[in-house]
């Protein structure tokens, strides 16, 4: 039998795509920069807003997100955790995935009507 190897980079990309579909998430920001340099990431390097740690069989995913203002933050964050971990487990088959959400900012509410 062969072996399946999924790179850290691929896991980041998958997680970034999954988090983009989560309701209430309007942006990802780089994981490693200080708040002063906060900037929304463009589509190509979204995975920089995702920090993946692999320790043996365990994978920890930290997501650095900007949420829409005027939404219940705790509820959105909980949904992100369950939605991203569900999707990651389904896509990769990795069982031990921990997802942490770091809310780095809230986007201002604006009138759209």
């Amino acid at each position: 039998m062969g072996k399946i190897i999924i790179s850290q980079n691929s896991i980041s990309k998958l997680a970034a795509l999954a988090v983009m579909e989560c309701y209430g998430v309007v942006g990802l920001v780089p994981a490693r920069l200080g708040d002063r340099f906060l900037s929304l990431l463009g589509k190509e390097n979204l995975s920089r807003g995702v920090d993946v740690k692999i320790d043996g069989k365990n994978v920890t995913i930290n997501l650095y997100v900007i949420l829409q203002g005027g939404i219940k933050v705790s509820e959105v964050a909980n949904t992100i955790i369950s939605q991203v971990s569900y999707k990651m487990k389904k896509l990769t088959g990795i069982e031990n995935i921990d997802v942490n959400v770091v809310v780095r900012g809230i986007r201002r509410e604006e009138y759209l009507g």
Binding site: L17, M20, E21, Y23, G24, V26, G27, Q68, I71, L112
Partner: peptide, 8 residues
């Protein structure tokens, strides 16, 4: 407004 709160 509903669509505005999600990237994709």
């Amino acid at each position: 407004v509903a669509y505005h709160a999600v990237i994709k």
